[in-house]
């Protein structure tokens, strides 16, 4: 089965979405991440969507779910790299991703996660 790889960097899990996101892939990612957070005791999840050309309400909901689920499992999620056209479309669609932390790029997202891990 097709899967989105989850890389571990210290206490952070890094997910780079490089393929066209279809619904089943999004659901599999959600389950895989929950398992990896539990197995690695990760404190942060960084999701890079810079390669995604669209985010519709289904993918948006998956991102919001991952964020809530990782919070419940004591990890923080940061979404990075959203393309400007995707951001404009998401707002117009009415999806403002409440509770999902975002950063402009991987560097800033990583800094956000490391800073908050240090404070704890």
């Amino acid at each position: 089965m097709e899967r989105i790889p989850i890389l571990r960097m210290g206490e952070i899990l890094l997910v780079t979405v490089q393929v066209e996101m279809h619904d089943q892939l999004a659901l599999t990612l959600q389950e895989d991440l929950a398992e990896r957070i539990s197995a690695t005791a990760a404190r942060g999840v960084l999701i890079d969507i810079s390669a995604l050309e669209i985010v519709d309400s289904f993918i948006g909901r998956m991102i919001a779910n991952i964020s809530s689920l990782s919070r419940i499992m004591d990890a923080q999620t940061v979404l990075v790299g959203m393309q400007p056209a995707v951001a404009i479309t998401l707002v117009e669609l009415g999806l403002n991703l409440p509770g999902v932390a975002t950063a402009l790029n991987v560097d800033r997202g990583m800094k956000l996660l490391l800073d908050s891990a240090q404070r704890q």
């Binding site: 050309e53 669209i54 985010v55 519709d56 393309q83 400007p84 056209a85 995707v86 404009i88 479309t89 117009e92 669609l93």
Partner: peptide, 9 residues
């Protein structure tokens, strides 16, 4: 690009 992205979404 923005109109394309909106349409595809």
């Amino acid at each position: 690009l923005v109109a394309q992205t909106k349409l595809v979404t």
